[in-house]
Computed example of a mutant assay.
Amino acid sequence: MSVLSFAAISQKLSLSRRLFLGGSLAATALPAAARAQEAAPSANLGARQLPARTLPVPSTVSEGLQAVIAEPYPPGWNALPADAAAWKSLAVKSAAGAAPAIAAIRQHFGLTVEQTKMGGVPVFVITPQEIAPENRDRLFVHLHGGGYVLFPGEAGAGEGMLMAGYGRCKVVSIDYRMAPDFPYPAALDDVMAVWGVLLAAYNPRKMAIFGTSAGGALTLAAILRAKAEGLALPGAIAPGSPVADLTWSGDSIMANAFVDNALVSRRSWANAAGALYAGQNDPRDPMISPIFGDFTGFPPAILTSGTRDLLLSDTVRAHRKLRKAGVPAALQVLEGQSHAQYLSPFLPETEDAFDEIMQFFNKHLA
């Protein structure tokens, strides 16, 4: 299916295609306290006032990606639900908004998707028409994004389907429990329950764990948890644009504010969603914000972000911390892309990103 046909499908929806990538709609204005929180860093010593400027769409990317970069901010990006019922309504809308993309990816690659349970946790087992010879004994475990609140059910499996299609590999996508009903540690508990089941059936050195945004943070947190519990680690991981720091302290949070056209700024729903997930727990807990954990002994890792990504700093900081811990780690930063836009289906840049990840896996997996 072409990019144009995919865009035509998406334009018929009441939700933006960016809902599939991590944007959202909401109904309530952001509280004044949150607006003040974003403004506060400007009072820091040495803070720099920037002149207003027009940011052009780069000519250095494909025409399909140029169209994605040119899109306006998601409707309601700086609004957030007023209560638990509104958050759950938003999750339902996110699934509806992702549905056409999910169907298009499945059809494009001819994937078989089976819903089942492992360790009592719902999962989607994704199998391409042909598995590459080097991947026949391997398994790739996917942890979806969406701020720990969005993309329930098959809606969360899109990235896993892209990996199965581009990488010609078998993928298990975990439909973990989410806030507001199930804040931390429910999602991580579910990931570990599935990991325990898979360890009984597969050689861990032939498995990889990957995911983007909240899924990237969960990937890192799962390794910290497995280390703490003495469990075998996967042969490699691929955390994409991880929400590695729920204190939202990285430089790009401010430097790429209003440059990123997916998350836009720290005033977005994603900040509130992270707080909802953390609940009463310290956001600096490494199992919640893995950037504060010990990365010693981590498996080889490839991290992905974009030059306009609001969470570029989280990705860069995690990469440097892995390197300092002596972990083989690669970093790909994609031209012009905002948060998680390398998940835009069928663009050449998307295929390149997944090819790079698969090359890394081929190098490090048994």
Rank of each mutant, 00 (worst) to 15 (best):
N203P: 12
P300E: 11
G97T: 00
S42V: 07
T219D: 12
G160I: 06
V264L: 01
N362M: 14
E335Y: 02
P72C: 09
E63N: 01
A262R: 00
G23Y: 01
I102Q: 00
P74F: 00
A40M: 09
L220C: 12
G326E: 12
R136P: 11
A301Y: 00
P185I: 15
L111G: 09
L30C: 03
I105G: 07
A238M: 15
L263P: 04
W77R: 03
D245R: 12
L218R: 06
P299I: 15
R138E: 05
L19H: 04
A187V: 04
F295I: 12
A85D: 09
G250H: 04
G165L: 09
W248D: 10
L218M: 13
S62A: 13
A273K: 01
L365V: 14
L218A: 14
E154Y: 05
L45E: 14
A33F: 06
E159H: 15
D309N: 09
D83V: 10
S249F: 07
N78P: 10
R18L: 11
Q332G: 12
E349C: 15
F109C: 09
T28L: 03
G156W: 08
S10A: 15
S173I: 02
A221P: 05
E38Q: 08
A95D: 01
F361R: 03
D83Q: 07
L50W: 04
V172R: 04
I174C: 09
S305K: 00
W195M: 09
E154K: 04
W248Q: 07
D251T: 14
A318G: 10
P72A: 10
A278I: 10
S252T: 13
L13P: 00
W77D: 02
H319W: 13
A244Y: 08
